[in-house]
């Protein structure tokens, strides 16, 4: 047998023994699922040392479990209420009694047919039929997104940028408010200039482009800080699970 698998089985056996013996720590969890969670957490963390059998075990388990999880979720939360219940409501009487009383909506035969066309991709003779379903999805989402991007990402952002640069509060000039609004207006313009490559970034245009990259760097720094701290929060969460839920060392 391969050496890495021997180590893996030994590790699982060791963990199982610790569970059975309760490790002599009174506060340690007796819940088998908590132990499984702790084992998998440690297995993933072991990657910090190097790629190993424990990590691969957890990684492969994750792929299988998450595929089945989303399959079941998709079936029960989307397919049953949005297709099966619409086509033949009495069939879902046991699981969704509120919907079971409604009249059937035969319009839903169309997405059902398109969905089946999608599965034709598996057919060796006519996989091209699946393109019809794909075309419906692409066309619909494109049409919906065209309006959405136009309204919120383009016009909405321009509208929010057209703000007064002199801010008056309670009858007097607000220096802080005015400064912030100037930074917003100038920042948006300079940011756009930085991404405008049809003119050489020289002279005043070059200065504006330079200001644009400063503003962008501040944004990237803020996003980077947020990302790092989000990961740290997750790490803290896992440590709390290991030390608290599993080992019972935290109150």
């Amino acid at each position: 047998m391969r050496k890495d698998l021997v180590w893996l089985f030994a590790g699982i056996l060791f963990f199982g023994l610790l569970y059975l013996l309760n490790w002599g720590v009174k506060a340690i969890s007796t819940d088998l699922l908590v132990w499984i969670g702790a084992f998998l957490t440690l297995a993933i963390l072991s990657f910090l040392y190097q790629d190993n059998a424990f990590y691969k075990f957890a990684e492969h388990l994750f792929v299988g479990v998450s595929a089945a999880y989303w399959m079941c979720m998709g079936f029960w939360n989307t397919l049953v209420p949005n297709l099966i219940a619409k086509l033949h409501p009495p069939i879902v009487k046991g699981v969704l009694p509120a919907i079971a009383e409604k009249p059937p909506e035969y319009w839903y035969i169309i997405p059902a047919a398109l969905g089946i066309m999608f599965l034709m991709r598996l057919s060796p003779k006519a996989p091209w039929i699946s393109r019809w379903a794909l075309a419906f999805i692409v066309g619909t989402t494109t049409g919906l997104n065209l309006v959405r991007y136009l309204r919120s990402d383009f016009l909405g952002q321009i509208k929010s940028t057209l703000i007064p640069v002199i801010v008056v509060e309670n009858g007097s000039l607000s220096v802080g408010g005015s400064f912030s609004n100037i930074v917003i207006v100038v920042g948006v313009l300079c940011g756009l200039i930085y991404f405008f490559f049809s003119k050489e970034h020289k002279g005043l245009f070059g200065v504006a482009s330079r200001v644009g990259i400063y503003i962008l760097m501040i944004t990237f720094g803020a996003s980077f800080g947020y990302t790092v701290m989000a990961r740290i929060s997750l790490l803290v969460g896992r440590m709390r699970f290991l030390l608290g839920d599993w080992m019972g060392l935290l109150q």
Binding site: L146, Q157, I184, V188, L189
Partner: peptide, 27 residues
């Protein structure tokens, strides 16, 4: 809320323009 917002607005305007152009090309 200020410099970060300014740069994000600039980026979103660019993304919006690109997405609109792509949508029209697809349609």
């Amino acid at each position: 809320s200020v410099p970060n917002m300014a740069a994000k607005r600039g980026l979103l305007i660019g993304i919006g323009l690109g997405a609109i152009a792509t949508c029209i090309k697809i349609i």
